[in-house]
Measured scan of single mutants.
Amino acid sequence: MLEGKVKWFNSEKGFGFIEVEGQDDVFVHFSAIQGEGFKTLEEGQAVSAEIVEGNRGPQAANVTKEA
């Protein structure tokens, strides 16, 4: 698991990027966000996630919002 913060997230398109210190930004799709209801993230929000290899490079999986 790694910790980072949301760089930006487009709720209409359902994707965005997470900033991780010392690494390239990581793509995040709404389907990777854990929880019930409408899955979205806010800019600057702290999150933790796993990194997996997607079709277009590294992407976030099992994204959870930090308190």
Results as ranks from 00 to 15, higher is better:
residue 1 M to A: 10
residue 1 M to Y: 13
residue 1 M to K: 15
residue 1 M to F: 13
residue 2 L to P: 03
residue 2 L to W: 11
residue 2 L to I: 15
residue 2 L to M: 11
residue 3 E to T: 15
residue 3 E to G: 10
residue 3 E to R: 15
residue 3 E to K: 15
residue 4 G to M: 06
residue 4 G to Y: 07
residue 5 K to C: 13
residue 5 K to M: 08
residue 5 K to S: 07
residue 5 K to R: 13
residue 6 V to I: 09
residue 6 V to D: 00
residue 6 V to P: 00
residue 7 K to W: 05
residue 7 K to D: 01
residue 7 K to I: 07
residue 7 K to Y: 05
residue 8 W to R: 00
residue 8 W to P: 01
residue 8 W to F: 07
residue 9 F to Q: 00
residue 9 F to P: 00
residue 9 F to C: 04
residue 9 F to W: 15
residue 9 F to G: 00
residue 10 N to T: 05
residue 10 N to R: 06
residue 10 N to M: 06
residue 11 S to L: 09
residue 11 S to A: 13
residue 11 S to E: 07
residue 11 S to V: 11
residue 12 E to M: 13
residue 12 E to A: 14
residue 12 E to W: 13
residue 12 E to F: 13
residue 13 K to T: 06
residue 13 K to A: 08
residue 13 K to D: 01
residue 13 K to S: 07
residue 14 G to K: 01
residue 14 G to A: 01
residue 14 G to C: 07
residue 14 G to N: 00
residue 14 G to E: 00
residue 14 G to R: 03
residue 15 F to K: 00
residue 15 F to P: 01
residue 15 F to L: 04
residue 16 G to V: 04
residue 16 G to H: 01
residue 16 G to M: 04
residue 16 G to C: 06
residue 16 G to W: 04
residue 16 G to N: 01
residue 17 F to S: 01
residue 17 F to A: 01
residue 17 F to T: 03
residue 17 F to M: 08
residue 17 F to C: 08
residue 18 I to Y: 02
residue 18 I to S: 01
residue 18 I to C: 03
residue 18 I to P: 00
residue 18 I to F: 02
residue 19 E to H: 11
residue 19 E to F: 11
residue 19 E to I: 12
residue 20 V to P: 01
residue 20 V to G: 02
residue 20 V to I: 14
residue 20 V to S: 06
residue 21 E to G: 08
residue 22 G to P: 02
residue 22 G to K: 04
residue 22 G to N: 08
residue 22 G to T: 04
residue 23 Q to V: 09
residue 23 Q to A: 10
residue 23 Q to S: 11
residue 24 D to E: 12
residue 24 D to P: 15
residue 25 D to N: 08
residue 26 V to K: 03
residue 26 V to C: 07
residue 26 V to F: 05
residue 27 F to Y: 07
residue 28 V to Y: 03
residue 28 V to S: 02
residue 28 V to P: 00
residue 28 V to C: 07
residue 29 H to A: 01
residue 29 H to V: 04
residue 29 H to F: 10
residue 30 F to G: 01
residue 31 S to A: 06
residue 31 S to F: 07
residue 32 A to L: 03
residue 32 A to P: 02
residue 32 A to S: 09
residue 33 I to D: 05
residue 33 I to N: 02
residue 33 I to V: 08
residue 34 Q to F: 09
residue 34 Q to T: 11
residue 35 G to N: 07
residue 35 G to P: 02
residue 35 G to E: 09
residue 36 E to D: 11
residue 36 E to M: 11
residue 36 E to T: 12
residue 37 G to D: 05
residue 37 G to P: 05
residue 37 G to V: 05
residue 38 F to R: 06
residue 38 F to N: 05
residue 38 F to A: 06
residue 38 F to I: 06
residue 38 F to H: 07
residue 38 F to Y: 11
residue 39 K to C: 09
residue 39 K to T: 04
residue 40 T to D: 05
residue 40 T to M: 09
residue 40 T to Q: 07
residue 40 T to R: 08
residue 41 L to E: 02
residue 41 L to G: 02
residue 41 L to S: 01
residue 42 E to D: 09
residue 42 E to F: 14
residue 42 E to L: 13
residue 42 E to Y: 15
residue 43 E to F: 12
residue 43 E to V: 15
residue 44 G to I: 03
residue 44 G to N: 06
residue 44 G to S: 05
residue 45 Q to I: 09
residue 45 Q to K: 05
residue 45 Q to H: 08
residue 45 Q to R: 07
residue 45 Q to L: 07
residue 45 Q to N: 07
residue 46 A to P: 10
residue 46 A to W: 15
residue 47 V to Q: 01
residue 47 V to A: 03
residue 47 V to I: 09
residue 48 S to C: 14
residue 48 S to G: 07
residue 48 S to A: 10
residue 48 S to K: 15
residue 49 A to L: 15
residue 50 E to W: 13
residue 50 E to N: 12
residue 50 E to V: 14
residue 50 E to L: 13
residue 51 I to L: 10
residue 51 I to K: 07
residue 51 I to R: 08
residue 51 I to C: 08
residue 51 I to F: 06
residue 52 V to F: 10
residue 52 V to G: 05
residue 52 V to K: 09
residue 52 V to R: 10
residue 53 E to M: 15
residue 53 E to R: 13
residue 53 E to P: 12
residue 54 G to E: 05
residue 54 G to V: 05
residue 54 G to A: 06
residue 54 G to Y: 07
residue 54 G to C: 10
residue 55 N to C: 15
residue 55 N to S: 14
residue 56 R to Q: 09
residue 56 R to C: 13
residue 56 R to T: 07
residue 57 G to H: 05
residue 57 G to R: 08
residue 57 G to E: 01
residue 58 P to C: 09
residue 58 P to V: 10
residue 59 Q to S: 07
residue 59 Q to N: 04
residue 61 A to N: 09
residue 61 A to R: 11
residue 62 N to K: 13
residue 62 N to R: 13
residue 63 V to K: 01
residue 63 V to D: 01
residue 63 V to G: 02
residue 64 T to C: 10
residue 64 T to H: 13
residue 64 T to E: 08
residue 65 K to P: 10
residue 65 K to Q: 08
residue 66 E to F: 14
residue 66 E to V: 15
residue 66 E to C: 15
residue 67 A to T: 12
